[in-house]
Simulated scan of single mutants.
Amino acid sequence: HRGLVRTAFFTPTMLPMIAAANLWLFFYTPGLGLLDHVTALFGIGPTNWLGQPGTALWSVMAVTIWKESGFFMIFYLAALQAIPPDLREAARIEGAGRWAYTRRIVLPLLMPTTLFVLINALINSVRLIDHLFILTKGGPDNASKLILYWIWEMAFAYLDQAGAAVMTVLVLAALGLIAALQFMFFDRRIHYR
């Protein structure tokens, strides 16, 4: 059972983003998609998930989270397996319940992994663009136009390569600064010495 669950979580990570976006495009199809069939069970009518400014970005985010979560699950699984079983035994001897053990021991020991995942998720959120081409093309009304899609559009649709180059450098500088600040702010608080 455990191997099957791990495979189910990791399988979306192995799919190319174009394939994942096409799969979810079928789920989001108004009136025909899987999501509309599920919401119809609760009496909710068809929804144009990708065609409304209020739901388009959330729909794109759901695809990205589904696709990337298996990758980050591997790191959390490795971090959980690295926690010595002696700590659980010691906590039980001291009278700590499951919640206290999780809050006082497991979560603090997972903080280095969480920092790594946060920085990688931030970089991935800016880096992913291919699913936007399939799902929304930045629409409707620019509701799902992310920065990298905007840079691509500036460079190849409007042929402003200089502006796109400047925006790329600014995005890289901002990502580097945010990652450095995360390391400086969180690194001292999460490692036990």
Rank of each mutant, 00 (worst) to 15 (best):
H1P: 00
L4E: 08
L4A: 02
V5D: 02
T7N: 01
A8K: 07
F9W: 12
T11C: 02
T11P: 09
P12C: 08
P16F: 01
M17H: 11
I18W: 09
I18Q: 08
A21K: 02
A21S: 15
N22I: 04
L23C: 09
W24H: 03
W24C: 00
L25C: 10
F26W: 07
F27S: 04
F27H: 10
L32Y: 08
G33W: 03
D36Y: 05
V38E: 04
L41C: 13
L41N: 14
G43C: 05
G45T: 04
P46K: 06
N48S: 06
N48Y: 06
L50V: 00
G51F: 02
P53D: 10
G54A: 15
A56D: 04
S59E: 03
V63F: 10
V63H: 01
G70Y: 10
G70V: 01
F72H: 14
M73W: 15
Y76S: 04
L77A: 14
I83T: 06
D86E: 12
E89N: 10
A90I: 02
R92I: 04
E94H: 14
G95E: 08
A96F: 06
A96D: 03
G97M: 08
R98V: 04
Y101L: 12
Y101N: 02
I105P: 07
V106W: 10
P108N: 03
M111S: 04
P112S: 11
T114I: 15
T114S: 13
L115Y: 06
V117E: 09
N120I: 09
N120V: 09
L122C: 10
L122H: 03
I123L: 10
N124T: 04
L128S: 12
I129N: 13
I129A: 14
L132C: 09
L135A: 06
T136G: 06
G138W: 03
P140M: 00
D141F: 10
N142T: 04
S144I: 09
K145E: 15
L148D: 07
Y149M: 12
W150F: 06
I151D: 09
I151W: 08
M154A: 07
M154F: 04
A155K: 07
A155F: 07
L159K: 05
A162Y: 14
A162H: 15
A164Q: 05
M167N: 13
M167V: 09
L170D: 09
L172N: 05
A174D: 00
A174T: 14
L175R: 15
I178Q: 00
M184V: 15
F185M: 15
F185L: 15
F186S: 13
H191T: 12
R193P: 15
R193S: 09
